[in-house]
Amino acid sequence: MKYWIIFWTVTFFLSLGIFYLTVLLIIPFGIRDLWWLFKLLNDRKTAAETKEPKQSDSSIDRDNGQ
């Protein structure tokens, strides 16, 4: 049991540290990605409104002639 306790102590705190490091790193980069996504969608929407409506880009829809 002693080894299991050591195992869980090390593993749990290591994982906890990695989790919060991930959270801290993701927040600034996530905001950047979100801004980039909005810009992409907005550009696509503007392009779709000025040209003909864009259909699905799914490969299976293209195969089915949709």
Partner: peptide, 11 residues
């Protein structure tokens, strides 16, 4: 989502 998600946002 327009397949526009970056790594951090997707994680």
């Amino acid at each position: 989502g327009g397949r526009g998600s970056g790594t951090a946002l997707n994680i």
